[in-house]
Design a protein around this nucleic acid. Structure first.
Lengths: 341, 341
DNA sequence: ATGAAAGCGCTAACAT
DNA sequence: ATGTTAGCGCTTTCAT
């Protein structure tokens, strides 16, 4: 039984207020007294009761800001469900979520929104960061000001965040490569519809795939990589063009948004039966494609968990001063086919 | 802002005690008054604060019993991790877990342990039930006595549980069938090492696999199904025998425990290269097999989540009277290959 | 720098 | 049947 502040106070012969101040490094307590109190706490293996803590500091509402790159990208629907689930769990602890959504990967636009959050005053922040030094610096500044930060879905090197919560993009590419090798019998002539080369994660995804094909399925090759910028219209046009120009292509993979457009191009060319098609994530277009048999398999990265865990980590940091032991929380990669959707 | 008991009391012109009694259907409150109080609560969309609730009823310790079929089956290691994670989260709410482990699927033995739990007095119960009418009846009796029950990993029809938390075994079999078809190029002569025919789930697993092979890969067939009872030694002997007698077998799948033993038989016969091998779950033997390239793919069922969610559901039921909307919580089925372990 | 006391929202024992 | 009151463990304000 881990003891309470009251007990510590009795043993230390001080008041409960003093114990609270000492244990939480609040100002206004004699150094030696604080030392003694901490010693007693340690000796009795004192663990603060987070329930009581939450109740007591309920007058102070904590605010977690969330900035998410979700507009126009259905992948994020499940991420948001995870965020909402976490919101429910922590609201009775006096936590409030403030979520803003943006479209695309414009660093300036994102920077503006970050500033808005900072001005409004938040205790913690979760973001899908654009790869840009400006963003990196802005986040580090927040962190220096004592705001806890988590990056999710997209990693950004150089940020002193509490954690990155998202998939290992390289590994996700390798996994795709493995499935392509298995299903094409090792003889893939692959066309890749990627996101944009500006996103490090998505670049690594292509590299991971390439490595596995080269090493394990040497009769395979990547014929061409095009960039669709998560946009269905661009994906449609470029896929059409690629398939017309490169008749040798027998397999296609869609690495990010724009899958719906790309699949439409395949259909319009009547190539559904001739191509082995692979995707990432489980958007409605992908689900439909798998059910129709057009898409053979997809590699998923636990969107719900990404949203849920990001918020829970921030919650634990703000309320209980818990810092995650590992600053990279890689979400499970799972392969889906027709039967385990 | 959802209001508090205090406010309701003020509006209804009664004391907080009465409001508490009315809202929680405790005895000793006038019917009409109770009605009025509930009406007010509804009108202001009152939601009890679970944090305060937990703190207040902290003197009463809640006990959740857990009976798990884990001894000798490494699959359950992760399930137990999930249970432990949940334990941490709910302990400050005054919840205590009492876990007992058993080996195998003996109904009488399980019944004895259930009785022990009942005698000791528990508020909720999570169990991996053996398929037996005795167990079904014992659980329904508990439920009638007001103890919340969740079945996890194994379903048991006829139990009025709060929920079953585990995989859809039929679907898991279909998923396996799909992978077998893809990887063998549709030409599998399959040997199946199953658990035991007594477990409905594991029977359905074989059926699901069979259905997909018949329908989608008609050049494939299941050559033989043997039962290994989750036991490595039995699996070793029977696999050895099967492979020696049925030389046409070119693919193997291990549906449950005993994988380590079965894989050893394959190695001893020097057939690693000649067979496509498939498994379920991610036990150490499977991980090793996949890394070595002996095992091609495995179908996983989220053991951590099974443990974690089972406890969380019981917690929510006991503390907040939350009944899950769906009494079947199927955990995600994910295919793993060498690259997304 | 420290103590005393009020209170977070709810429950439960005790009074009436 | 209903009201009153004392907590649960912690934070915070106000005295001292």
């Amino acid at each position: 039984m881990a003891g309470t502040i009251k007990e510590i106070a009795r043993i230390a012969n001080v008041s409960r207020g003093t114990v609270d101040r000492a244990l939480n490094d609040r100002p206004g307590v004699n150094k030696e007294v604080a030392q003694r109190i901490k010693e007693i706490a340690r000796s009795m293996d004192y663990k603060p009761n987070s329930v009581a803590k939450a109740l007591a500091s309920r007058n102070r509402q904590f605010v977690i800001g969330v900035l998410i790159n979700s507009i126009g990208n259905p992948f994020f629907d499940d991420v948001i469900l995870g965020i909402e689930a976490a919101r429910q769990e922590i609201k009775d602890f006096g936590f409030q979520l403030k979520m803003r959504k943006m479209r695309g990967y414009n660093a300036k636009e994102q920077l503006e929104l970050i500033k808005t959050f900072v001005n409004e005053g938040i205790d913690a922040f979760a973001i899908t960061p654009v790869s840009d030094p400006m963003i990196r610096d802005a986040l580090n500044e927040m962190i220096a000001d004592g705001i806890h930060v988590v990056c999710f879905n997209l990693d950004l090197v150089g940020v002193n965040y509490l954690a990155y919560v998202g998939c290992d993009y390289y590994k996700s590419g390798e996994t795709l490569g493995g499935m392509i090798g298995y299903i094409t019998g090792g003889k893939a002539r692959l066309g890749v519809i990627a996101c944009t080369n500006n996103l490090e994660g998505h670049r690594m995804r292509v590299e991971g795939c390439q490595r596995v094909l080269e090493k394990e399925f040497p009769q395979s090759e990547i014929v061409e990589v095009i960039e669709a910028e998560d946009n269905d219209e661009i994906a449609y046009q470029k896929t059409l063009r690629m398939l017309e120009e490169r008749k040798e292509i027998n397999a296609l993979c869609f690495n990010a948004g724009g899958t719906r457009g790309g699949l439409q191009a395949v259909r319009d060319l009547g190539l559904e039966k001739k191509l082995d098609i692979f995707t990432f994530d489980l958007t409605p277009a992908v689900i439909e494609g798998i059910q129709n048999g057009i898409v053979k398999s997809t590699v998923c990265q636990q969107p719900f968990t990404q949203g849920y865990q990001s918020i829970k980590i921030l919650f634990d940091a703000v309320l209980n001063d818990v810092i995650p032991e590992n600053d990279h929380l890689y979400t499970d990669l799972s392969v889906k086919i027709k039967y385990n959707l």
